[in-house]
C-alpha cells in the first residue's frame, strides 16, 4: 500500500507557560486513507503525549476537531492527508488553531466568545401559539417546501470554522458572526416561530450589514451550510420589516436603483445614495484620486443595450423570491 513520509508542522502554545507560540515538527509515515485527525492521534500516541487538540466523533458531525490546515479551516477528521499533500504539492502540512478566538493550548481554542454571542441572539424557537398546537396530541403541519427554507441551515455543527475565517468578525467585535446570523435566519423563516421576520432586527443589532460577502464562511463550511446566504436573506427580511433607513439598506437600494436605471453600477452616486453627504465626504479623497487618474465615470450613465430585457429578468427573479 502507498505510504508517504509527512512532516506535520504544528503551532504550539501554552499561554500559562510560553511567552509566545512556536512551531514543532513531527515526521510520521502516513498510509493512504489516513485522515489529519488519525495522524494527530499517531503523533500523540507514539511521539508526543503533550500535544493538545480536541476530537470526539471522528465522523464529521460533532464539530470538535476543526483546525487550520495550511491556512484553511478544516475538520481534521474528514480531511485526508494525501489529498492535502496533493493540493499543496508538498510533504509538509502546517496545522494551526482556528483564528478569531483565544488559544487555550496548542490547537484548542476558546469557543466561549462566539457561542456567547450566539446565545445572546435568541437561537431558539419561541413557539407561535397561533401555529403550534397547544396540546401534545397534535403536531404542527409543516409542508416539505416550508421545511426547505431553513433545512440546510440546521446542518450547522458549531465547529466555528466559519467564525475563524470571517473577515467581519475579525474587524468588528459587535458583529454577530456567520453561523450565529445564519441561525437567526433559520428561525426567521420557520412558520412555527413567534418572532418570525422580526428576528431580522436581531441580525441588524448584531451588525449583519458589516458582512462583506467575502463568502469565506461558505468556502470553509464542512457541512455546506453557506452561512452567507442566510445573512443575505436576513438582510432582505430586515428591509421587509421596515429597517430601511440605514447605510446597509440604502446601499442595497442604491444598487437596485442604479441597475434599474441603466443596467450599470453607478459608483459615483453610490456613496451619496447609501450614506448621504457623509458618504460623499468619506469617499472624497478616493474619488478625487480616481478622477485625476481618469478612472471615474460620469454620474449620468446611459442604459446598456438590452436594458429592457434586464429589467424584465429582474422583475421575474423578484417574483420567484
Amino acid at each position: 500500500m502507498e505510504k508517504k513520509e509527512v512532516v506535520f508542522r504544528i503551532k504550539r502554545f501554552n499561554p500559562k507557560r510560553d511567552s509566545e507560540p512556536y512551531y514543532q515538527e513531527y515526521r510520521i509515515t502516513v498510509p493512504k486513507g489516513m485522515t489529519i485527525l488519525e495522524a494527530l492521534h499517531v503523533i500523540k500516541d507514539e511521539i508526543d503525549p503533550t500535544l493538545a487538540f480536541r476530537s470526539f466523533c471522528r465522523s464529521a458531525i460533532c464539530g470538535s476537531c476543526a483546525v487550520k490546515v495550511n491556512g484553511f479551516p478544516k475538520l481534521a477528521c474528514k480531511t485526508q492527508v494525501f489529498s492535502e499533500l496533493d493540493k499543496f504539492g508538498t510533504d509538509t502540512l502546517t496545522l494551526e488553531p482556528l483564528d478569531n478566538m483565544e488559544v487555550i493550548r496548542d490547537l484548542i481554542v476558546d469557543w466561549d466568545k462566539p457561542l456567547k454571542k450566539m446565545e445572546e441572539m435568541k437561537p431558539y424557537l419561541i413557539p407561535d401559539p397561533s401555529v403550534v398546537p397547544s396540546t401534545l396530541d397534535e403536531e404542527t403541519r409543516v409542508y416539505p417546501e416550508e421545511l426547505k427554507k431553513y433545512d440546510r441551515f440546521t446542518d450547522c455543527i458549531l465547529c466555528t470554522s466559519c467564525f475563524s475565517a470571517c473577515t467581519a468578525a475579525q474587524m468588528d467585535e459587535g458583529y454577530g458572526g456567520p453561523f450565529q446570523l445564519a441561525r437567526v435566519y433559520r428561525f426567521a423563516v420557520d412558520k412555527r416561530d413567534a418572532l418570525k421576520e422580526e428576528r431580522a432586527k436581531i441580525g441588524y443589532a448584531y451588525d449583519m450589514w458589516n458582512c462583506v460577502r467575502c463568502e469565506k464562511c461558505a468556502d470553509v463550511c464542512p457541512k455546506h451550510v453557506g452561512p452567507v446566504d442566510g445573512i443575505m436573506r436576513l438582510r432582505g427580511l430586515s428591509i421587509k420589516v421596515g429597517l430601511k433607513d440605514n447605510p446597509g439598506a440604502r446601499h442595497v437600494f442604491a444598487f437596485y436603483k442604479s441597475i434599474l436605471e441603466s443596467g450599470l453600477l453607478n459608483e459615483v452616486l453610490l456613496p451619496l445614495r447609501a450614506k448621504g453627504i457623509k458618504g460623499v465626504l468619506e469617499n472624497l479623497p478616493v474619488g478625487i484620486k480616481m478622477i485625476l487618474k481618469g478612472k471615474a465615470h460620469s454620474p449620468i450613465m446611459r442604459p446598456i443595450a438590452e436594458h429592457e430585457n434586464l429589467v424584465k429578468v429582474m422583475k421575474a427573479a423578484m417574483e420567484v423570491e
Binding site: D137, E139, R141, V142, L147, Y150, D190, R192, D193
Partner: peptide
C-alpha cells in the same frame, strides 16, 4: 416526539405536512 416538534425540531415531512 410532538413536544420536540413544538420546540422546533426540523423533522422530515410527508406531503401533507405531518
Amino acid at each position: 416526539i410532538r413536544e420536540m416538534e413544538h420546540m422546533g425540531l426540523p423533522f422530515s415531512r410527508l406531503p401533507d405536512g405531518r
